[in-house]
Write a protein that binds this DNA or RNA. Structure first.
Length: 822
RNA sequence: GCCGCUGUGGUGAAAUUGGUAUACACGCAAGACUUAAAAUCUUGUGCUCUCAAAAAGCGUGUGGGUUCGACCCCCGCCAGCGGCACCA
């Protein structure tokens, strides 16, 4: 449309004046459909193509479902806490609150321009005290259930951001945000026991309809391994009489997935952080050993995570001077210290079976340690293992665990890669953790009636060099009374991580203004679960897992409806749009496409429709302006066609059935494809229909013209609205009498028009198509006649003359295959 | 190393899930309109052979298999993408 800006303004205003169009109804008898797109972080640079693409995908579906008569909840909000805003505020010496307000205003406007049909009456903002009151409330519940605890622990410290990072935020030993190398630092942190929910998070996936990729990613991340814990007695030297003289620990416990190889365990390895090591360092038993150990520990502490993994090929280690006793054969085996064993996994100690484990083998070779084979390579049966000999792996595991349990020195157990979730951030722009430290009572949660604990305004937002949150400098905030004993106490000054606010936002949309509960049970019962959750692959693990964890925790509390154990039914990943150069868009490459700019040039509908036409919704695609021009051409031709039709009304011709057949096929296909988010082919159907209808040169009745416009409406809301208005009113009615196309009823395919009178049957010889045959639809099940006619075809005669027809296969209405032989 | 995914024209991609491979679009070529260009319209467009057409052959990364028939199912290989990774 040449005057697209005028039209966009007109209808934007109209929609603004009719907010009810897109509002979800809490008291509807219609089917509900909760369609969620990941809410954005409102950065200063505005809505980017990725947002526009993902939201358009959700919007098309929401519009489609609304027209199908469903009660659609399609909300939007802001995940607005976070470092970029804080950093920007520091740099510009402004309040993060003000910056956030500006950014969200900008985002909202851009979204409205792009015609996203969000229900703005339900907008949420994670930085709003009315919102984060409940984020804090959830934390208190975690604390009360023993799932949040304070712990002095080595954390990943980013020296540039001056912030502690969760394991998930460290990529290749570097800070996910700024790329600086991460070091380790001991800080007292709030930690949330997500590991308690590891099994539930795996099992719960069965309740969902996530794509396999997402399920697998989550399962991998949790990383459950089944095996056994085994206790080994510790001795200080091979000559000493029994227990260790230099350590207070009697037993060394290990986790192994292969207890069946216990007879092959020839040494033990413990992590440098293992408590046995600190015990050793405190006592001074053997001067030279002592020194070796100290040197080794020092070296490994200096290594960052990056080095520890990069240098993984080369094993290092030091002998501890201690021995363990293998419980199955009472053999004394040496205990080594090495940083290839991780303190944070299992028990921080392993039994080494160098004959059957690559890493153990490497270590044994380097330090000249013994290797014993316990499996016969040919038969895969246990050898050299006394009572396990001759068994296969499964039998041996079962038997040895039974043996160990009876002796009380071992048991079946599972171990997980998933770690507890470090929940403290030493920054300003986050939710204050609602805890108070009392010298008498310890950590006490803020009284729920005192929530929210509002972020106080501070002069300086910079994190302090000692790593403490800027809040720690505000005396009026820090000094408080213990809610339990009333004595003097201090507030926690750390804030929560970004994930905290986004864990449960989808629940708040359901009941955004509720001040007594986070959302009413009744409304949650109606709206939960989210039917479709559209988001990026980068959130398939962390956000989705945290969010599922918090939901499951709330479920255990009885806060969310019992009927719904999982928050999201279906998860869809949207694809990634690359720059025209096939590279990831970035300012430095100068290949950034700004949706606003393109929309300004060609119109919003062109941009929306092009993005949906580029390729499958979940794939990676490069921006291509030529293809975009193709879409523009289509929309122009569509408009011309409709206008022509409007002017021709009244001159209907008799061959109308052809129009109906095209239209109804298109209805059926587009409906099916929209349902599956196959927008690229849905749009292709639309194009095909327009091509065919244009060729027919027939005039159509109003009803059919409207059908065509309705099919377009989810993709091109402005164009559709303008054209629908023209057909509906022939420009005579006033705008206020007009009801939007976006709440018009979605067309249903009429099966009588899905049938074509004549169908083409392919004729194949030995599976290769050689000819075609046109038959009447009604006669398609008359195999004999069709086969006879096929044999009569000139081309076919050439192939079958002088040959023996071995078989005649007829697939009704599709093809005939003659199998011939010489 | 483990897990998941992908491989189809010059390009982005379709294929009703075992039944006419390449829909739709881009690009390209020729033509129309124009003084000219852009825009628009028409026609053609998998490859080989042919001035052209017909006919034929080849053709969904690759080698096999199952089947009347395979982009689709099975086995092996190659290439690429994504996630996890010294996890015992």
């Amino acid at each position: 449309m040449e005057n697209f800006k005028e039209i966009e303004n007109k209808w934007r205003k109209f929609w603004e004046e009719h907010p009810g169009l897109y509002q979800a109804d809490n008291n509807s008898k219609k089917n509900k459909k909760y369609i969620l797109v990941e809410f954005p972080y409102p950065s200063g640079s505005g809505l980017h193509v990725g947002h526009a693409f993902s939201f358009t995908g959700g919007d098309v579906y929401a519009r489609f479902k609304r027209m199908q008569g469903e009660n659609v909840l399609f909300p939007m909000g802001w995940d607005a806490f976070g470092l970029p805003t804080e950093n920007y505020a520091i740099k510009m010496k402004r309040k993060p609150q003000d910056v956030t307000k500006e950014n969200t205003d900008m985002f909202r406007k851009q979204m409205k321009d792009l015609a996203f049909s969000f229900d703005w009456s339900r907008e949420v903002n994670t930085t709003d005290p009315h919102y984060y009151k409940w984020t804090q409330w959830i934390f208190i519940q975690l604390f009360n259930k023993g799932l949040a605890y304070k712990k002095e622990m080595p954390i990943n410290w980013c020296p540039s951001c001056k912030i502690g990072l969760a394991n998930e935020e460290v990529v290749d030993g570097k800070c996910e945000r700024c790329g600086s190398e991460v070091s380790r630092r001991n800080i007292s942190q709030w930690v949330v026991k997500i590991t308690e929910y590891a099994d539930k998070l795996i099992e719960g996936l069965e309740e969902t309809n996530f794509i396999e990729k997402v399920k697998q990613a989550q399962i991998n991340w949790i990383g459950k391994s089944e095996g056994a814990k085994i206790k080994f007695k510790v001795k200080s030297s091979s000559s000493s009489r029994d227990v260790a003289r230099y350590v207070s620990t009697d037993y060394l416990e290990v986790f192994t997935t292969r207890p069946d190889t216990l007879f092959g365990a020839t040494f033990m390895v413990i992590a440098p952080e293992h408590q046995l090591v600190s015990q050793l360092l405190e006592t001074h038993h053997d001067a030279s050993l002592q020194k070796n150990i100290e040197t080794y520990i020092k070296q490994s502490k200096k290594k960052s995570d990056l080095e520890r993994t990069e240098l993984s090929k080369d094993k290092t280690g030091v002998f501890s001077g201690l021995y363990a006793i293998n419980p199955v054969n009472n053999k004394e085996i040496p205990i080594w210290i090495s940083d290839f064993v991780l303190a944070s996994y299992g028990t921080g100690a392993i039994m080494s079976v160098p004959a059957h484990d690559e890493r153990d083998e490497e270590f044994a070779k380097k330090f000249g340690l013994e290797m014993i084979k316990v499996y016969d390579e040919k038969s895969n049966k246990v050898i050299n293992s006394d009572f396990l000999n001759g068994l296969n792996k499964e039998e041996a595991i079962k038997k040895v665990i039974k043996w160990l349990s009876e002796k009380g020195i071992g048991e079946r157990t599972a171990s997980y890669h998933l770690r507890d979730w470090i929940f403290s951030r030493q920054h300003y722009w986050g939710e204050p953790i609602p805890m108070i430290n009392c010298p008498k009572c310890g950590w006490v949660p803020v009284a729920e009636s005192d929530l929210p604990i509002v972020l106080p305004e501070v002069e300086v937002y910079e994190p302090t060099d000692d790593g403490k949150s800027p809040l720690s400098k505000i005396e009026s905030f820090v000094k408080t009374k213990c809610p339990k004993c009333g004595g003097k106490a201090e507030r926690e000054t750390d804030t929560m991580p970004n994930w905290a606010g986004s864990d449960w936002y989808f629940l708040r949309y359901i009941d955004p203004d509720n001040d007594t509960v986070l959302a009413s049970q009744e409304l949650m019962k109606y709206w939960c679960p989210v039917d479709v959750y559209v988001g990026g692959d980068e959130h398939n693990v962390l956000h989705l897992l945290y969010s599922r964890f918090i939901y499951k925790f709330l479920w255990d509390l009885g806060v969310v409806p019992k009927e719904q154990p999982e928050p999201y039914y279906k998860r869809l990943s949207h694809g990634v749009i690359l720059g025209p150069d096939n590279q990831r868009m970035s300012k430095s490459k100068g290949n950034v496409i700004v949706p606003e700019v393109v929309a300004d040039k060609y119109g919003v509908d062109v941009v929306r429709m092009y993005m949906m036409f580029m390729g499958p919704f979940d794939s990676t695609m490069a921006w291509n302006e030529n293809t975009l021009m193709g879409v523009k051409r289509f929309l122009d031709r569509f408009e011309q066609f409709i206008k022509l039709q409007i002017n021709q009304v009244g001159s209907e011709t008799a061959k109308n059935r052809e129009v109906k057949v095209i239209l109804n096929k298109t209805i059926k296909n587009i409906t099916d494809m929209n349902e599956q988010f196959k927008y690229n082919t849905a749009i292709a159907q639309m194009m095909e229909a327009l091509n065919k209808l244009t060729d027919l040169r027939l005039s159509m009745v109003d009803e059919d013209i409207k059908t065509l416009i309705k099919l377009l409406a989810p993709f091109a809301p402005y164009t559709a609205e303008e054209l629908y208005f023209m057909v509906e009113t022939h420009d005579r009615a006033y705008l206020h009498e007009y009801a939007s196309v976006h709440i018009a009823e979605w067309p249903k395919a009429d099966s009588q028009y899905l049938i074509e009178d004549k169908i083409i049957v392919a004729i194949a010889i030995n599976g290769k198509v050689r000819d075609q045959l046109e038959i009447n639809f009604a006669k398609q099940n008359d195999k004999d006649e069709i086969v006879e006619r096929a044999k009569g075809q000139e081309k076919i005669k050439k192939w079958i003359n002088g040959k023996v027809i071995v078989k005649e296969i007829y697939i009704e209405g599709k093809m005939i295959n003659f199998v011939i032989k010489d």
